[in-house]
């Protein structure tokens, strides 16, 4: 299914300079981040990033010893009007799909939202059926 987007999730120690070290590896590997969010606990963080060529970026970063995994997320274009998030969340809620986390980003093509849900395929289907278009990787 092409409307599932591969997100890279990267483990980051919560200590000074660690994010910089990982960012420097990203640069070294020529990985360009389009959107990201940083989840944090007291001792560590998880960097979640949407990048160009995620498969290739994953291989490169793993070979540098970065602790990471590929996670499937879905992307939605957000119309710039009140209630836009509600509509999406409402469809997913109605379909019994749980949203674990999400983050938004404003790119060249307007605002978008990335969601990690417990069943991404069912989410794409449910959203599609109610007229909410999910994004392909090429559309980000």
């Amino acid at each position: 299914m092409s409307e599932i987007i591969t997100q890279l999730s990267i483990f980051v120690n919560n200590e000074p300079g660690r994010l910089a070290a990982i960012a420097s590896t990203l640069r070294e590997c020529d990985v360009s981040m389009k959107a990201f969010s940083l989840a944090e606990s007291v001792e560590f963080g998880i960097l979640r990033a949407i990048v160009q060529n995620p498969e290739q970026a994953y291989e490169k970063l793993r070979s540098k010893g970065i602790v990471m995994k590929k996670t499937e997320v879905i992307g939605i274009r957000l119309p710039d009007r009140p209630g836009a998030i509600f509509e999406t969340a409402n469809v997913l809620g109605g379909a019994g799909i749980n949203i674990e986390y999400g983050y938004a980003y404003t790119g060249d093509n307007g605002p978008m939202m990335f969601l990690r849900v417990d069943d991404p395929r069912a989410a794409v289907e449910a959203l599609g059926a109610s007229g909410v278009k999910t994004l392909k990787e090429s559309e980000i």
């Binding site: 999730s9 483990f11 606990s41 998880i46 979640r48 995994k69």
Partner: peptide, 18 residues
């Protein structure tokens, strides 16, 4: 140091490992 295979994208999984 955690092994790559043990890493989860979910903060609560990592806390429960700890």
């Amino acid at each position: 140091e955690i092994r790559n295979e043990a890493f989860s994208d979910r903060v609560e999984d990592m806390i429960s490992l700890k």
